[in-house]
Write a protein that binds this DNA or RNA. Structure first.
Lengths: 195, 195
DNA sequence: CCTGTATGTTTACACCGCATACAAGCGCAG
DNA sequence: CTGCGCTTGTATGCGGTGTAAACATACAGG
């Protein structure tokens, strides 16, 4: 087999994917502090400089990891959205968003910590946007609703991750669902008050 | 003068405060990457190990810096709250919160990046809580309203800082005020919709 | 004055990201 | 098959970091 890769080949096979996976593992167990390029290389059984053949630098690797995280997030939001209809669907998305952050805190931090040089929204944004647009009522333009919903769940997730919210509330995700549902209902069914 | 401090005194006078200030300066110009214990010490014209006489380690110093940041934030929220009444006061707080984050992004990140071992809320929380409680209507319990408002502005700030929101919207803070005002009005004046 | 204690300094180590120079394996003309 | 070249991984080294230990200095109270 000309393309077979022996176990101990000098060439790794596909290091790039292995590096991203290793980085993710290190991240999820041990936090961001444990994520050093050298440690990643060590985990893959490879020299410290090897990653530089596949990534421009540490930041580049982290970007790849974050991209993978955004894929996972989009998937989670998609299935959550499909699990219900109307305002409940948006609430489900909100709960899923917070749950994702709680389940993979270090990854979530990484995803939103990078100053994000490329301003393109993650694919997950589209999923939220679609649902929010469908719910937008007279009280608030669709654009503001999308932004408000995103800000709400993102802020909630961030505060939980930073330990700013009592654990019994944050842990279950009940608060996330309740608050998002409140928001969704208010946005959907309510006319602009007097002012 | 027994207490006079010569320019080149061996003892600094009050290093602790100087270190915190220096750390803040380094943080505000140059981002978090520029904040190394050694750089802080250098800025104060002192050896690299000197800070350890006043702080248990880098994390401890950062905690002190964050505490100072929370003081400033509380003050900003307080004056904003006093600048208006009713729902507009909460909107003003929201705008001030986001403005604070935009004005001092690195500090804001630091304040909410530490996993926050001591679960006590910042003093700023009380200011928001009071206003939210005063506004709480039948649509949402006061506790949820407080949490929702905080999450909303915090998430908005975080998303802006991460470059996830178009600059023309985030920069001015208009979005923050608009959205928070929407939230405040909805919470204050609107009965629970049919469901 | 003499001594104890708080405060800074020096030296040292392990780790990090990264630059450069080198070696090992694969693919493809001939 | 042979040999060349390119990709991939290695070895070594530099400047930087956080921090531990041992040392030096200035002030305070007897």
């Amino acid at each position: 087999m000309s393309t077979s890769r022996s176990e101990k080949a000098y060439h790794h096979g596909d290091l790039r994917a292995a590096l991203v996976s290793a980085a993710l593992e290190l991240l999820e167990g041990g936090g961001e502090a444990a994520l050093s390029l050298r440690a990643v290389a060590r985990t893959c059984g490879v020299s410290a400089m090897a990653p530089y053949r596949h990534f421009a630098g540490k930041e580049d690797l982290l970007e790849a990891v974050a991209a993978r995280g955004f894929e996972d997030l989009a998937e989670a939001l998609g299935t959550a959205d499909a699990s219900a209809a109307g305002a409940e669907a948006l609430a489900a998305q909100g709960a899923a968003y917070v749950a994702f952050a709680c389940r993979r805190p270090a990854l979530f931090r990484l995803m939103f910590m990078t100053p994000c040089r490329k301003p393109d929204r993650p694919r997950a944004y589209g999923i939220l946007e679609a649902r929010a647009a469908a719910l937008a009522g007279p009280a608030m333009p669709a654009e503001d609703l999308t932004l408000a919903a995103w800000s709400l769940v993102h802020g909630l997730a961030a505060l939980i991750l930073d330990g700013r919210i009592p654990p019994e509330a944050g842990g279950t995700g009940a608060v996330a669902r309740r608050i998002t549902l409140h928001l969704a209902r208010l946005m959907a069914g309510v006319p602009e008050p007097s002012a």
